Each structure stands twice: as structure tokens, then as C-alpha cells.
Simulated scan of single mutants.
Amino acid sequence: MDLCEQFSSHFTARKHQPKTIASLGGIVQGREETLRDYIERFTMEVVEVKGADDKLKCFIFEKGLRAAVMFKENPGLKEPQSMSDLLSRA
């Protein structure tokens, strides 16, 4: 293996990979985590995801909530129109 190949193989593994919509699916609210902390953690990740629409992001956000925090099940609430709308309601 020549020096160029060694250099490339060493630093390719360290290259920052862009976040995907699938990576958001792994973000769930911890048992003792507050809603505010979950929102902060989710929004830090969601800003790095490109190309996903807000409805999908909202779905993934709501899916990651603990069952006891499911504000979305309130029948008086309309479906959020955007991710910022959902986060402001939360």
C-alpha cells in the first residue's frame, strides 16, 4: 500500500458523515429526560439533516417521546404545520 492510499484510508474513516433521516429515528426521550432536554437534543441533530420534509421530522420527534409525555394525543390540538410549530407547542 503506498503512502497516498494509507493516508486516504486513515482519514476517510474520520470524515464527518452527514446525518440522515434514519439517524433521527434513534433519538428517543430518556426515562428521566425532561421534554426541554429532549427537544434540545433532537433539534441539534435535525438541523444537520438535509432533504427531509417537516411532516416526517415531526413524526420522528413524536415517536421518540415517552408515552407519558404524549401531548399529541390531546384531541383539541391540530396537526402541526411545521417542525417549528411542533416544537413551540411542546
Rank of each mutant, 00 (worst) to 15 (best):
S84H: 06
V28T: 05
C4R: 07
I60G: 02
T34G: 09
P80Q: 03
R36Y: 04
G76H: 14
M44F: 10
M1S: 05
R31E: 00
F42C: 11
R14W: 14
S88P: 04
H16C: 04
R66P: 01
Q29D: 00
V46L: 14
R89E: 00
F42G: 01
M1N: 09
D85E: 01
L24Q: 03
D53Y: 12
R36N: 11
S84C: 12
Q6M: 07
V46Y: 04
E40R: 07
A67V: 12
S88A: 08
V47L: 10
A90W: 02
H16Q: 04
E79V: 15
E33I: 15
A90L: 12
L3E: 11
R66Y: 01
S82C: 11
F71R: 15
I60T: 01
R89Y: 06
V49S: 06
Y38K: 05
R31I: 14
A22H: 14
E40W: 09
L35K: 13
R14M: 12
G51F: 00
E5A: 10
R31L: 05
E45M: 12
C4S: 05
L3C: 05
F7E: 00
A68C: 08
Y38D: 00
I27K: 07
K63Y: 04
T34Q: 03
R36S: 11
F59Y: 12
E40Y: 14
E62Q: 11
A67Y: 08
R66C: 07
L87Y: 08
L24H: 12
E40G: 10
L56P: 03
K72W: 10
T34F: 13
F11R: 13
P18C: 10
A52Q: 01
R41M: 09
V69H: 07
T43V: 15
A13H: 05
K78N: 12
L77C: 09
K19T: 13
G51R: 11
L3V: 06
F11H: 13
E40A: 08
F59E: 06
V28P: 02
H16K: 11
S84G: 15
K72D: 00
E5H: 06
L87D: 01
N74C: 13
D85Q: 14
S8V: 12
F42T: 05
L3A: 09
D85I: 12
S82T: 07
R14P: 04
E32C: 07
S88D: 02
F11G: 07
A68Q: 07
S82M: 03
L35W: 11
V28W: 02
M83Q: 02
T12A: 06
H10N: 02
L56N: 08
S84I: 12
P80I: 12
K55I: 10
K55Y: 08
L87G: 02
Y38H: 02
H10Q: 09
E62S: 06
K57E: 00
Q29E: 01
E45A: 13
L65E: 01
E48C: 15
E62L: 10
R89A: 06
A90I: 14
M44W: 14
M44N: 08
G30V: 03
K55F: 05
G64K: 15
N74P: 03
S82N: 06
E45Y: 11
F11S: 03
M70N: 02
K78C: 08
I39A: 09
S82R: 05
C58W: 01
Q6G: 13
F61H: 00
I27F: 04
E40D: 09
